[in-house]
Design a protein around this nucleic acid. Structure first.
Lengths: 248, 248
DNA sequence: TAACTAAAGTTAGAGGGAATAACGAGTCAA
DNA sequence: TTGACTCGTTATTCCCTCTAACTTTAGTTA
């Protein structure tokens, strides 16, 4: 049934497949260069093809549409950011509880500052702007994995040494219900009360970073490093861990 | 010198000018309808003209380019949002100090929730995405007026009854310097220490709202009303005013 | 009243982008 | 050798922005 009888047949197939994948990677790399050099509006099928010495329609052998290409590129960005965050958090592990979280948070900001155009595409896709009701599949999938990295750190802190949590009874019923559902979706590894702390921390950090990257506060602050560190200090207080200033 | 000798000459000129302005307003209204109905990508010169029963190039009599039209539309949105915020804050005035701030904050969220597409264009213009270095003139001008509305409320609270402020000596030098410069740009009406509290409050509120409107947290929270109110409670604590739950 | 002027609309067209169709050249296996 | 498959091409369609050149119309002026 299978055509995998021996290597004489599978080898060329694999080689072709690898060539195809490197071509796709080259297309995405070219698109990213265009994004960084000339802005998001310059990322067109024709412009990418021109940069690669190809004719426009050739790219449709590799991506069915411009939107698909852009989505793949955004998935790249998510992957790169998540990898950077994971690496930073593992580097800081073994020390005091929460050192991984601090390292991860700083690497998140570092990546966003180093790649503002890419970060902008993560936050709001130019593709998703097309239709009003259409939700962003990349953001739903990868955005989940994105918050997940932060969640893992909070989870580690929670499992090592519980942090203070608010009483879920004091919350409005709608909020309590949503927290319970979310906690369940997490497999119950984080109780609803602790999940509310995780979400509060994540919103604080991510919200502040967006304010900075999208320059919403630049009428007052050009350099937001101290404010970001102040935010991290408050997260540490909320999670009952020790704050350590960045080294270097 | 002036051609304003009597009404026989000025009347037709004014009438033409008025006609021109109502035409511009109609164009912007049509564009907004397109934005709301079919998304940002549908806001094209040709589509607007089609909806109005005109040919495309006719619109260039009223706006020099698509970008200019979009900028004018965004200025409309800023104006509408700011007017809503101002109205809400004046309605709540006279009562306890800070009641205006609470009303304003809630009307801000109310407007953003009612007009997510418009809010999206305030936060990140599709025009500004063109070039990487190009800053957004509308956001710089109107965004300032936007934060100003919140600032006025904080200022009123400050002048009525000082709120606790952090010591500027304890801050990093970079932050202290930026705060002093900002305070000076404000005409010294708010000292640097108090300005840091204003900015912290504004970033918290605006950042949280962006998280909600851009659905960054919808993996956990569908309805963020309680979280927004929680944030308002914390702002009240920071500004040393009484929190009052929304009526209704 | 007749001619002039300026504004507001028109069509035609250049230039670019997304996407499809139809076609040619290479590769590989039977 | 032949047939199939892949990857590239050009040609074409449709839509977009924007300019040029024109008609029409309303208001002004001699």
């Amino acid at each position: 049934m299978q055509t995998v009888d021996d290597s004489q047949e599978t080898a060329p197939v694999d080689r072709k497949e690898r060539q195809r994948q490197t071509m796709q990677a080259e297309i995405r790399a070219t698109a990213r260069g265009l994004l960084v050099d000339e802005g998001g509006a310059a990322v067109t099928i024709n412009a990418i093809a021109r940069r690669m010495g190809l004719s426009g329609p050739a790219l449709y052998r590799y991506y069915p549409s411009q939107a698909a290409l852009i989505d793949a590129l955004r998935a790249d960005f998510y992957g790169e950011l998540i990898a950077a965050m994971r690496q930073a958090s593992s580097h800081g592990a073994g020390d005091a509880p929460g050192s991984g979280l601090l390292a991860m948070s700083r690497s998140l900001r570092g990546w966003a500052l180093a790649h503002p155009a890419e970060f902008g595409w993560l936050f709001a896709s130019p593709t998703a702007n097309r239709e009003p009701g259409a939700c962003d599949p990349i953001k739903s999938e990868m955005g989940h994995a994105f918050g997940q990295v932060f969640l893992e750190q909070v989870l580690a802190i929670w499992e090592a040494k519980r942090f203070p949590v608010p009483s879920i009874e004091d919350m409005p019923a709608i909020q309590a219900e949503q927290l319970r559902a979310f906690s369940e979706r997490l497999g119950g590894r984080l109780p609803a009360e602790a999940a509310s702390v995780y979400l509060a921390c994540w919103m604080r950090l991510y919200g502040l970073l967006c304010m900075e990257i999208f320059r919403q506060i630049d009428f007052a602050y050009a350099d937001m490093t101290p404010i970001y560190e102040e935010c991290l200090q408050e997260l540490c207080r909320l999670l009952d861990i020790a704050y350590a200033p960045p080294d270097g």
